[in-house]
Computed example of a mutant assay.
Amino acid sequence: MMAWRLAGGVIREDYSTVHLNQLLEKAEAIAGRMLRLSVFYRNQNKEYFDHARDEQENRMLPSVKDDSGSHGSPISGKLEGLFFSCNTEFNTGKPPQDSPYGRHRFEVQADKLFNPDTNLYFGDFYCMYTAYHFVILVLAPKGSKGDDFCKQRLPLLDMANNPFLTCKRVEEGEGGLLFHHAQDVILEVIYTEPVDLASGTVAEISGYQQMSMSTVNAKKDPSCKTCNISVGR
């Protein structure tokens, strides 16, 4: 484990690769069947997108990941990125119309962020005293600063063959890309580079803002046998 001194002199030890692989195995066991997806999406309030347009040259910029998830996560407080969702509703195949993060949603075609020039890493597996379990994945363009960071700390996943999020080339026709996500876990996908708003669309959702589902700085349930490993939280 690597140890880090936090505010107030508290020492936090990061999970080693061995520990992360143990966590990965636990997550794989409950991921469930795979469903099709076509977009990644990111919900925020209107002011967030206005600021991106007016002050950030129409771009969403990466920020340091908060302390949500496992106590020993090596990406908390260090990895910079943008959180995206990709889960779809079983009955519609589309993103849900509810979100805890804001009523405005940026949607981008999946291949803009996830393609053969991207590496996919497993980042974390946790729950928040609920029946829902979350898996954090990291998408990092190959050779990027984020990719270099993850390469030293996180398990690399096979983009075409893993139980969480896959990208496969269609053999027939023009050979486009086909994407699937795990049904039984909520995926939080961190993209490590800036994203131009012009690469997708921003629109207001019709559903509710479910604040109770927010994972901002959420603490992991240390008693859950499904998502904890022997080193503790």
Rank of each mutant, 00 (worst) to 15 (best):
N45Q: 09
L197Y: 07
L165N: 06
R53G: 01
K168S: 13
A198P: 00
Q97D: 11
S206K: 13
A203I: 00
K145W: 00
L165Y: 14
P194D: 01
D98E: 13
K46H: 08
V64H: 02
L154F: 10
S214P: 05
V202N: 05
T226F: 01
G200L: 01
F40L: 15
F114K: 02
A198S: 13
L79P: 11
V189Q: 02
D184W: 02
P163T: 04
N21Y: 08
L37S: 10
D196Q: 07
Q209N: 12
A31G: 06
A160K: 14
A110C: 09
W4T: 09
H71I: 02
E107G: 09
G69T: 09
Q22F: 05
Y126E: 01
K220H: 15
D148E: 12
G207T: 04
E25H: 05
F114P: 14
L35V: 09
G207M: 10
I205K: 01
N217C: 07
V216A: 11
H51A: 15
P194G: 07
L79R: 05
F179S: 01
W4E: 08
G232I: 04
Q44H: 11
A203M: 04
L6T: 09
D111V: 12
D196I: 00
Y101K: 08
P116W: 05
N58S: 13
Y121V: 06
D50W: 07
I190N: 00
V202P: 02
H19D: 15
E25G: 05
L23I: 15
S70N: 03
P100C: 03
G32T: 05
T201V: 15
I186S: 03
R36C: 06
H180Y: 03
F134W: 07
D184H: 13
N58I: 00
G143Q: 02
P116N: 13
P163N: 02
E57Q: 13
S144L: 10
A182N: 02
T226W: 00
T92A: 05
I229P: 08
G207F: 04
K151D: 03
N91V: 11
C227A: 14
R42G: 07
Y191D: 04
V108D: 04
L79G: 08
F84V: 12
F49Q: 10
S199P: 00
A160N: 06
H104R: 13
P155E: 03
P62E: 01
N87E: 07
D148N: 11
D67L: 13
E188A: 15
R103G: 12
M159G: 06
E57T: 06
M159P: 13
N161V: 07
L177C: 15
S206A: 10
F179Y: 15
